[in-house]
Amino acid sequence: MISVLFFAKYREQLGTAKICIESSELGAENLTVAELKAHLSQRGDLWATVLNAENTLCAVNQDIADSAKLLSDGDEVAFYPPVTGG
């Protein structure tokens, strides 16, 4: 199972803070972040737009990750807009 988290504007736009995806549903054992994005983009235009926006950031297990990052069962993936703290 992979957990996928959404924050801030994306959380509001998608109407969810967290989804859990069973490995069986993903079809492959070791997906990349890019493949996970493609899979989730099938959920609709809004999902495709949010996930493929140029400035969408991704973290895997709370470390910043790029699209080539390989995911493993149990990973926590997060997608979020540019940060605005401080």
Partner: peptide, 21 residues
């Protein structure tokens, strides 16, 4: 300011908005 995952949402007299980076 650029790496820590915080996001600000402002409430103004004309409504709420997420602050842009």
């Amino acid at each position: 300011k650029t790496e820590a995952p915080f996001w600000k949402k402002e409430r103004t007299p004309s409504g709420e908005r997420w602050v842009d980076a």
